[in-house]
């Protein structure tokens, strides 16, 4: 089987295109981890709270979640709670109570939560101010 120069060039081009598309698909598939902003639900104005990082792990089939935060100087009463979500993206175990932020104004600290049961697969951190 013989190919002339132009058809060979076309084949190479198509192959490169295919590679490029596959790479883009792979990258977008791997990049499905939600961002901190996507994991945070802000109600009212809570911009004084900056979330530095979030992590979660399943221990004994219970999801543990942590968020490191920094609170800028503010006189606002800010509260938080964790929302637990199952594998089908439904909220489970109802609403937690809103808790006053344990981190003082101008300080940093860690918000800690454990899912009430084994159905929780992921979480959202909810922040609210008065």
């Amino acid at each position: 089987m013989h190919f002339n120069k132009s058809s060979n060039h076309m084949l190479t081009k198509s192959f490169l295109k295919l590679c490029l598309v596959s790479t883009v698909v792979l990258i977008s598939a791997c990049n499905s981890t939600p961002t901190i902003d996507e994991m945070t639900v802000r109600m009212r104005n809570t911009e004084e709270v900056k979330i530095l990082d979030m992590r979660s792990i399943k221990v004994n089939s219970l999801l543990k979640a942590e968020a490191t935060i920094v609170v800028k100087s503010t006189k606002k009463a800010i509260s938080y709670r964790f929302m637990w979500i199952d594998k089908n993206a439904f909220q489970v175990y109802g609403d937690e109570a809103w808790k006053p932020l344990p981190v003082g104004s101008g300080q940093s600290g860690v918000l800690f939560g454990i899912a009430p049961g084994p159905a929780a697969e992921t979480f959202r951190l909810e922040l609210s101010s008065d």
Partner: peptide
């Protein structure tokens, strides 16, 4: 009101 809200 919100039964889970912060009460002060």
């Amino acid at each position: 009101g919100d039964s889970k809200g912060v009460e002060t």
